[in-house]
């Protein structure tokens, strides 16, 4: 059984596709670091990521399918599911093997997996837009922190830049320990030193927060409580639409 081992990046996967055609070799399985090697891997090829090759594959892909379909493939890659990489790889090869455009062949299980995973990843990015909570710091920077399941901050940051373009903000992914800082003009990727307490609790300490921050948090919690209709309490639905894994950093839920 032929196995392609790649570095876990999207460029790596696309380099693998390049190799499949240049070396005329089809892997039954592609494996990222941390992924499980199949039991009988007789022929293991290590793919060395090469951006010039991956770009050629990407551009070729754009000539074969619509931009929407290509972007669904790129986004689905972010689902961090090792078993899925083989499906994605196989479908990209099918795109190149077929004379016609196969992007709407919804009876192909690989394609359905791509759509499902891109839906999941986009859903997570949407949840960042929904559930990010900012606290106002004394220097007028709005600070927001979350732990999304997938690496999606870069998909959400444009939304925040558009919305809060007249102010400074930070959005931070604590799980992957990086974020974005916008200073009112430029956006940059950044990393906070992890010895600050608000890095673990998500709560700005009093000496860093704006004087009115506590008041508005209190107002929000009050609003949250009193806008619910007591005759219709429905915790199951609340948890379904706002999963508990987000509550830690939600002002209205982190139980102060």
């Amino acid at each position: 059984m032929t196995v392609f081992r790649f570095d876990g990046s999207f460029d790596g996967l696309l380099t693998g596709v390049f190799l499949a055609y240049s070396a005329k070799k089809r892997p039954e399985c592609v494996v990222a670091p941390g992924g499980e090697m199949p039991l009988f891997s007789s022929d293991v090829v290590d793919v060395v990521t090469d951006v010039s090759k991956s770009e050629r594959v990407w551009n070729a892909l754009l000539r074969k399918v619509s931009r929407g379909a290509a972007s669904a493939m790129a986004i689905s890659f972010l689902c961090e599911d090792n078993a899925f990489y083989t499906s994605l790889f196989r479908f990209i090869c099918r795109v190149f093997d077929s004379a016609e455009n196969v992007e709407s062949d919804f009876s192909d299980a690989d394609l359905l997996a791509i759509l499902e995973n891109s839906r999941r990843v986009k859903g997570e990015a949407h949840r960042v837009v929904q559930f990010m909570r900012f606290q106002k710091a004394a220097d007028d920077t709005y600070f927001g922190i979350m732990e999304p399941r997938y690496d999606v901050m870069h998909m959400a940051v444009e939304h925040f830049r558009d919305r809060f373009s007249d102010g400074k903000f930070i959005i931070y992914d604590r799980r992957r320990d990086y974020g974005y800082y916008y200073d009112g003009r430029r956006l940059e990727r950044m990393r906070l030193s992890s010895d600050r307490s608000h890095m673990t609790t998500g709560i700005l300490p009093d000496d860093m927060a704006d004087a009115d921050e506590q008041l508005f948090q209190k107002l929000w919690r009050t609003y949250f409580k009193y806008t619910a209709i007591p005759e219709r309490i429905n915790p199951r639905k609340q948890r379904q639409d706002m999963p508990v894994r987000f509550w830690k950093y939600l002002t209205e839920k982190n139980g102060l």
């Binding site: 837009v129 919305r163 373009s165 619910a228 209709i229 219709r232 609340q238 639409d241 939600l250």
Partner: peptide, 19 residues
């Protein structure tokens, strides 16, 4: 300040009644 997202609205939270 601000923008309005088209199509579907954004739910920022879900109250205790699930709305």
């Amino acid at each position: 300040v601000g923008n309005t997202v088209g199509g579907i609205g954004v739910c920022h939270s879900f109250a205790d009644d699930g709305r």
